[in-house]
Amino acid sequence: MTSYRKSAVAVLTAAAVLTLGLGASPASAKSSDGFVRGYDGFADDFDDEGTLSLSLNEKSNATCMWQALLWSEGIRNDRDGIDGLFGNDTYQASRVFQDWNGLTVDGVVGKGTFAEAGKRLTYVSGSTARGKELTLKYESGVRNISLIRDSQGRYKFRDANSGWRVAGYDYLTCP
């Protein structure tokens, strides 16, 4: 093979590798499998969650669960307004939560904001062992809400109609 052909093959190979690398989704956009999830002990379950914002996962059950947590905090006052749409109201409420907790105030619910919320999880019943269901309470000091970590580690929250929903990043089924 001539040196010209070797150079051309090397350039094309590098371009293909670069294109594949740039096409990958950023790791912070979602949790690894599309669900708010935890295993074993629950204290750090929210420490590695994906991002919720005006442009990431803005229409999702994970956003709906976040809105329920904001309602529990007393930042959102309308339980019926929990709709899973990360609009300006949720953006502003997230900024209030961040400000109250000494976090960077940017309205983006990322690992730090989720981790701060996770500090309010308390044990109610069940087992922290993998494959077992665990019932937790989110205790904000204003309103408490129940959460379930199912046998697959996925978090469930109760929507405004008293139905249980799985908190996922890739779909929206809450009212």
Rank of each mutant, 00 (worst) to 15 (best):
Q92P: 00
E58F: 13
V105D: 05
L121A: 04
V11A: 15
L172M: 07
S53R: 07
T13P: 04
L22G: 09
L85Y: 09
G153D: 04
L52V: 06
D48T: 14
V124M: 11
W66S: 03
R120K: 15
D80P: 00
Y169Q: 01
V36S: 01
R95M: 15
L172H: 09
T2D: 15
T173D: 15
P26A: 13
A27K: 13
N57G: 08
S127L: 12
Y4C: 07
L54S: 12
E139R: 11
S146L: 14
M65N: 03
L147E: 02
L22P: 03
G131S: 09
I148A: 06
A14C: 12
N57A: 13
L172E: 01
G50C: 05
K156D: 03
P175A: 10
S125E: 14
S55D: 13
Q152K: 14
L69D: 00
Y123V: 06
T13W: 11
T135S: 13
F35E: 00
R158S: 08
L54M: 15
D83N: 15
E58C: 12
G163Q: 14
F97E: 03
R165A: 00
V109L: 03
G163I: 02
S127R: 05
R95F: 05
A16Y: 12
G118V: 05
D89W: 01
F46V: 05
V36I: 15
R120H: 11
C64Y: 03
F97H: 09
F157W: 05
F157H: 06
D78E: 14
V36N: 00
A68H: 06
Y91V: 00
A117N: 02
T113F: 05
I145Q: 03
G34L: 07
T51K: 03
Y39S: 11
G110F: 05
G153F: 08
V109F: 02
L18Y: 10
K59R: 14
Y169G: 02
N101V: 07
R165M: 11
S31H: 07
D159K: 04
G102N: 14
A62W: 03
D159E: 11
T122L: 06
G102R: 08
G21Y: 13
L20I: 13
K132W: 00
S162P: 00
Q92V: 05
F35C: 01
S53K: 06
T135N: 13
R149P: 02
L134N: 02
F97Q: 02
E116L: 11
A14G: 10
Y171K: 09
G23P: 01
A115D: 03
A14H: 07
P26T: 09
S28N: 10
I145T: 07
P26N: 14
T113H: 04
F86Q: 04
S146M: 12
L18K: 08
L56R: 12
T51W: 00
G50Y: 02
T13C: 13
T19D: 04
